[in-house]
């Protein structure tokens, strides 16, 4: 049992940290990808990053050109972008600050350190040479996950953090696949060319999946990538894995709670859908539509969690 407010904060702390980590990795991978490609460089390759975060409208209102400089600023330090790394880290730290009595000291200190680092970087005018910073964001994300995994009792605090992290990760993996699929697929002339392999390889890298994917499928093509990122049972960043973890965590959290638990019901619908699907069929009926429904259902789960645990 823990205070509802505290449970809510720790859930969001984990979500925001996971979000910051994902954005940093997406940028990092994209920057490296740019070095591999020369095609249509400025115009087409930076905007997808914005689309992945789902904030294309906010971006277009504030910037004219989707060039490297603008996109990096928007995604990294723009205070008006609710999903910029800076904003995520502020929110993660603010949430951590309200619950620091339940966190191991090291976890709090790491997030605090990252916050101060972010502040120092954001004061600089230039967005060049941020690679070290992105590395730092990702490292802190891993450190925090590791510290929590290794030092926290598996009581409610840890469970809510884990739940938040898994749902956020499922959402980001799905979104990344959706955007990349939409952008890459129309270029049918390039399908199964080295260019295509480089692009889909970058997608896999964006979610730390390249090596694990190769062990499973050996060569890179969009169908197998879709199968791996959505349905692979054993890869800890696939949508199926994350949602399964989230479902198990939810059922542990619900033990001994008498009140009707809408979150469990919504979650069951979601995992059932995933279990009954595979890539070929999903691509045939429309990947975008499938992911759309998935995300809609994930939002329902998030709302149901709020109703079941955080609301008074």
């Amino acid at each position: 049992m823990m205070l509802s407010r505290v449970a809510n904060s720790i859930y969001w702390m984990a979500r925001y940290m996971e979000r910051a980590d994902n954005v940093a990795r997406f940028i990092d991978v994209n920057t490296h990808l740019m070095l591999d490609l020369t095609l249509n460089r400025e115009a087409t390759q930076w905007f997808p990053l914005v689309a992945t975060s789902g904030d294309d409208q906010t971006f277009s209102q504030r910037y004219k050109v989707a060039d490297e400089r603008n996109v990096l600023r928007f995604l990294t330090f723009d205070q008006k972008n609710p999903n910029s790394i800076l904003h995520c880290i502020y929110r993660a730290r603010e949430n951590a600050r309200t619950v620091r009595e339940v966190l191991p000291v090291d976890v709090w200190e790491k997030i605090n350190e990252l916050y101060h680092l972010t502040q120092a970087h954001s004061r600089k005018r230039s967005v060049a040479d941020l690679m070290d910073y992105y590395t730092q964001v990702r490292r802190t994300g891993h450190l925090m996950t590791g510290l929590m995994y290794n030092t926290m009792s598996r009581s409610q605090g840890w469970q809510f953090a884990h739940l938040g992290q898994m749902l956020e990760r499922a959402d980001k993996t799905a979104r990344l696949l959706d955007v990349k699929y939409f952008l890459l697929l129309p270029q049918t002339s390039l399908l199964d060319t080295p260019f295509d392999a480089v692009q889909w390889g970058a997608v896999l890298k964006s979610v730390h999946a390249l090596e694990m994917y190769r062990q499973r499928f050996h060569t890179i093509n969009y169908k197998d990538v879709t199968q791996f990122l959505l349905f692979e049972k054993f890869f800890p960043r696939s949508v199926a894995f994350c949602l399964d973890e989230a479902a198990q965590t939810l059922s542990r959290l619900s033990q001994g709670i008498e009140r009707p638990n809408k979150a469990i019901i919504e979650m069951a619908i979601l995992t059932k859908t995933i279990a009954a699907s595979e890539a070929t069929q999903v691509i045939a009926t429309g990947l975008h539509e499938f992911i759309d429904v998935l995300q809609y259902n994930m939002n329902l789960v998030d709302e149901a969690i709020y109703e079941s645990f955080f609301k008074d």
Binding site: M1, M2, L3, S4, R5, V6, A7, E101, Q156, L253, G256, I257, E258, R259, F309, F310, D312
Partner: peptide, 25 residues
């Protein structure tokens, strides 16, 4: 021990309760 803000506490029947994930305690 829990760190409460006023919004976490509620008085009912002249007893004080905190709002937790499992209901009032």
């Amino acid at each position: 021990v829990p760190l409460c803000q006023n919004s976490d506490l509620v008085v009912d029947d002249d007893k004080v309760f905190m709002r937790t994930t499992g209901g009032l305690v």
